[in-house]
Design a protein around this nucleic acid. Structure first.
Lengths: 231, 231
DNA sequence: GTCTATAACCGGATAGAC
DNA sequence: GTCTATCCGGTTATAGAC
């Protein structure tokens, strides 16, 4: 059962060959002609399945993210501690991506180019993004987290942005097993949780800080939402 | 006096024509053939002066930054307040860049691609970077700033990274006169100054936070230093 | 309609003649 | 220093095969 159709077989062949070449020679250095030829099809065929070279990478990212979200359920079931949940989910994400860390550089390098479909913040990735933010929301729901009311709405977005920052940092991190990112993750996540707790206490200047957090979050979502295709 | 040589005239011609076209039609949409033809030279001639299309943008960025640093002296002379000094220097930077904000998008979009010469973090920009960090150091020297000793060495780098973040945010900011960035700048700079003051006080968890700041700064400089050319 | 193959287009970049 | 001719690779158009 679940034999792949000939079409799907070709598609998969192109994908795996592409990923392989990208990993081996780098993204820019692998031409579509190369990929098609190695996969035993014509250039046109490769373009029939994937409109742009970048879509080969995008497909990989999509699959990994889908797999990640499936496994989130189990992480949530284990504990009510928000810090533990979020930490485990981020680790899950990194683990799933780890075989392709070098390839993820393509996403990272183009991350700030929202017009480029391969950026995690592009329109093409909107679905993944919405889903990922929903995922963070699931982590929050039913956890022990308590925050200032003004943060409630934007919290999933903020935390997702933080998660993305960690993933991008990890992508560039050349220390063995990315231990520097691991260290930073532990320290920074703890700090975030402390700050969220503090957000409930009366503190001088609290208003200004909350205002700042809101303004930067709104700018970030603005910019991302505005992300448009190449003209 | 100071008549430009014929060679320099051609160079300048290509530059201005390029900048014009970029502003009018966008960077990707303006081909080198276009630029060369409009400037009245052959494609090869344009490439004789600028190895890559991106170098046309880079040259603009270099010139603006050089002009900025010249004017820093005057800002420093006006006050000893670190907050005021740094604020004014950032404003100076934004003002100088403002005629080319759209063009600066090319830098911003490629900022995370350190292999791309147009990224503010590329090897090609190392000189500008070192100089800019030195500039921040000048602002610190003789100001009223006081910070925890463990931050002293890395402070110029941290603050320069913050400055870059503001410039990049500003580049994307489509609110009128980039007032959203302006608002965020005021709030965040004030917060930074407060945090620097606090860094001198005994506070629970201070060690962890300082450690975190150091670890992320060292990662950032690592990654940037490692920035290499396209293979 | 689903897929494949070939040729062509476009633009960044280079080589080498003058 | 300037030009022409050329390469190279992403992408598209097109013509057909199944």
């Amino acid at each position: 059962m679940s034999k792949l159709s000939k079409s799907d077989q070709t598609r998969e062949k192109i994908l795996t060959v592409g990923w392989n070449l990208f990993q081996k020679k780098g993204f820019e250095q692998s031409s579509m002609r190369d990929i098609a030829q190695t996969a035993g099809v014509a250039t046109g065929a490769a373009y029939y399945y994937f409109k742009r070279k970048e879509d080969l990478v995008l497909e990989l990212y999509k699959r990994v993210q889908a797999e990640c979200e499936k496994q989130t359920e189990q992480v949530i079931a284990k504990t009510k501690s928000f810090e533990k949940r979020f930490y485990d989910v981020i680790q899950l994400n990194l683990k799933q991506l780890s075989p392709y860390r070098k390839l993820m550089l393509v996403l990272a390098e183009n991350s700030m180019n929202f017009k480029n479909s391969v950026s995690p913040f592009s329109v093409e990735n909107k679905k993944i993004r919405t889903s990922a933010i929903g995922n963070v929301n699931k982590i929050i729901q039913g956890s022990n987290i308590k925050v200032h009311s003004s943060l409630l709405n934007i919290l999933p977005t903020i935390l997702w942005l933080y998660e993305m920052a960690i993933v991008l940092l990890w992508t560039y991190d050349s220390s063995t097993h990315q231990k520097k990112t691991q260290q930073f993750l532990k320290l920074s996540l703890k700090l975030i949780c402390i700050l969220l707790k503090i957000s409930l206490l009366p503190i001088p200047g609290k208003k200004g800080i909350l205002q700042m957090v809101q303004s930067i979050t709104s700018m970030a979502t603005d910019i991302i939402q505005r992300s448009y295709k190449k003209p």
